[in-house]
């Protein structure tokens, strides 16, 4: 991946923006907790692509890759804990519809 390699930078920029929009739309519109997590994952993909793109723009891909690795680790832990929360909520309320989950007692 040398300096002379021509890449469509705008294409990646537009893709990051569109992936963000898809993920945000999914989170805002859905009432299913698992689908909201999927939207969050898509936003994470957009951020991963953004970091990689900026790393290549600045010529510092090693630093960008280390950030992406950190992001992926945090992403996995987030998904594991969120999945556990969804399962716990389902066990308690027998639903994962956020419109039903309106009790904030305790």
């Amino acid at each position: 991946m040398g300096d002379t390699l021509i890449q469509p930078v705008w294409l990646y920029g537009v893709t990051v923006a569109l992936l963000m929009i898809v993920g945000l739309y999914c989170i805002v519109v859905t009432s299913n907790l698992i689908r909201a997590l999927i939207g969050l994952e898509i936003i994470m993909k957009a951020v991963t692509l953004l970091i990689t793109m900026v790393g290549q723009l600045t010529g510092n891909t090693a630093m960008a890759q280390s950030f992406v690795i950190t992001l992926i680790v945090i992403e996995v832990v987030l998904m594991i804990v969120a999945g556990g929360l969804v399962i716990s909520i389902f066990r308690k309320y027998h639903t994962i519809d956020v419109r039903v989950l309106r009790n904030l007692k305790g």
């Binding site: 991946m1 300096d3 021509i6 723009l57 010529g59």
Partner: peptide
């Protein structure tokens, strides 16, 4: 972010590996 045919890596690459 640049033009369609802009070179993406204009800065000198870092000598350090991952």
């Amino acid at each position: 972010v640049g033009d369609a045919a802009a070179p993406i890596a204009q800065a000198p690459p870092s000598p350090m590996g991952v």
